[in-house]
Amino acid sequence: MPTHADRKEPEAALRVRALESLLAEKGLIDPKAMDAMVDLYENRIGPRNGARVVAKAWVDPAYRQRLLDDATAAIRELGFSGLQGEDMVVVENTDSVHNMIVCTLCSCYPWPTLGLPPVWYKSAPYRARVVADPRGVLHEFGVDVPDDKEVRVWDTTAELRYLVLPQRPAGTEHMDEAQLAALVTRDSMIGTGVVRTNGAPA
């Protein structure tokens, strides 16, 4: 028997199709433009971009400083810019502060560096709970923050978009920029994760 959840997806798909055909009939979009947009965000723009930013900041102290001073310009140096990344801020995790990002009002997210947000990021439970109980949410993501370390939650409801610069894990001194980038996860740049070396216990 179909449940409510089963019906949800086809309804959403139907609504998207109706919107797309209306926009096309009214002469506002060429359907090929929709295909181009979907291709960009499915295949070209995603968290690997952000991982490159993080890895470069780890190996290049001057770049790290530019990133913290003017994130939009520093990220553009690597070729990442545009929609939902027009005005960027990078916040750095340290031994005393763990940052995490949410948009409690909707789903604001830095598209050029992280792509489109994961479903849980847009869910009401994440948005409501991360501001009120960030340590509880972090625990569910497998991250436990010591009591003397500040958890700093950034609610990105205005026009700035945020990216977390995670801490470089110990034991990675021998790695080059590309190897480091491969370690960087999407969640570590939202702040719901930390970067670990391969094989390290979770």
Binding site: G27, L28, I29, D30, K32, A33, D35, A36, M37, L40, I45, S81, G82, L83, Q84, G85, E86, D87, E159
Partner: peptide, 18 residues
């Protein structure tokens, strides 16, 4: 009319609310 040719530039440019 938004065409496929416009999309990459539009996405890379964005629209700042500044």
């Amino acid at each position: 009319l938004l065409t496929a040719e416009i999309v990459p530039g539009l996405v890379a440019q964005g629209a700042s609310a500044r």
